[in-house]
């Protein structure tokens, strides 16, 4: 092959993937450099000055207000991930056992709510958990209580309810896919050899579904770490997460460098969690549900 025809075939290979690749490079990758630059600029009362400083990072890592909010975000995200896992695993098992038309219907019914805006799905918990919401109304009508309680809304509890409700599909789906791939004969063989159902689950089903568990946990953790809508609608002042603080820097206090530094920190947490999970199951499994 001559150099010229090699170059031509190289160009022909590159041509179809170039538009998508360039688009992502310009709008998804390059902005990170701008974000990092912004996080290193100086915020003054008069606005943003293009002078290099580490002040914003010093604030993020030394000011207890920001340290605590980051730790709290990590805690809320971890707890939401664990709750999602516990809620989703049995359903994934149920779906994996279904067959034919019934399976397709249950899968469709699982997907349907997730095809609508998470803003709407977060908001609906206000008239369920609120003062004149469904739960208070039901408990009072049933005579369980005489006055409505406020404890259900505008705290961490409401944030957990919202996050788990909004993001559970991202846990159920990968676990279901990994369980669905399992050969039912494996479980049967294990029980034929005398394994009790609990043993079969612990020694056979669970270990083989771990790749799905890891990708589900990673997705829900990522989505929770960056949550903004759910904590602002349901969390009140005690349920605030780092997303709310970042938004505040841009929409209210106009301290872009500090908001950028907090965003860089969130990206750092995302990279660490994706790397840790990726080392266990491989990136392709994590996001595409395929083997290594």
């Amino acid at each position: 092959m001559t150099a010229r025809s090699a170059a031509r075939s190289f160009g022909a290979e590159l041509l179809p993937i170039l538009p998508g690749g360039l688009w992502l490079l310009v709008f998804a990758v390059v902005p990170f450099f701008f974000l990092i630059v912004m996080s290193l600029w100086t915020a003054t009362v008069f606005g943003i000055e293009p002078e290099w400083t580490l002040e914003s990072y010093r604030t993020v890592f030394a000011d207890p207000v920001y340290v605590l909010i980051v730790l709290k975000t990590l805690r809320i995200s971890l707890v939401s991930t664990v709750i999602s896992l516990l809620v989703s695993y049995p359903l994934a098992m149920f779906l994996a056992r279904m067959q034919g038309r019934a399976k397709a219907m249950f899968l469709f019914a699982l997907f349907l709510p997730f095809w609508s805006s998470y803003l709407v799905r977060s908001f609906t918990w206000l008239p369920i958990l609120g003062r004149n919401g469904l739960i208070n109304h039901a408990l009072i009508s049933a005579g369980v209580m005489s006055a409505p309680i406020d404890a259900l809304l505008f705290d961490e509890f409401a944030v957990y309810v919202g996050l788990v409700y909004v993001y559970t599909l991202f846990m159920t789906l990968p676990i279901y896919l990994s369980l669905d791939r399992l050969d039912p004969a494996l479980g049967e063989a294990a029980s034929d050899l005398g394994g009790r159902p609990v043993q079969v689950f612990r020694r056979v089903t669970l270990p083989l579904s771990l790749p799905g568990v890891w990708s589900g946990c990673t997705m829900v953790f990522l989505l929770s770490v960056g949550a903004y809508v759910t904590p602002s609608l349901l969390g009140g002042t005690s349920g605030i997460m780092v997303g709310n603080v970042i938004a505040g820097q841009f929409l209210e206090s106009n301290n872009w460098p500090l908001g950028a530094a907090l965003s860089v920190l969130v990206i750092g947490m995302v990279i660490v969690s994706v790397t840790l999970a990726g080392m266990r199951v491989g990136l392709r499994q994590l996001f595409l549900g395929q083997g290594r």
């Binding site: 290979e13 993937i17 998508g20 992502l24 990758v29 950028a260 990136l283 996001f287």
Partner: peptide
Amino acid sequence: WRGVMLPLLLVPIITPGIVSGVLMLVFAGM
């Protein structure tokens, strides 16, 4: 080219929504 394109395609998915919003805001602003 998979080794290049797949990670590139994953970037918008793993970037948290709030960070994506901020990225575009800062990028366009600058």
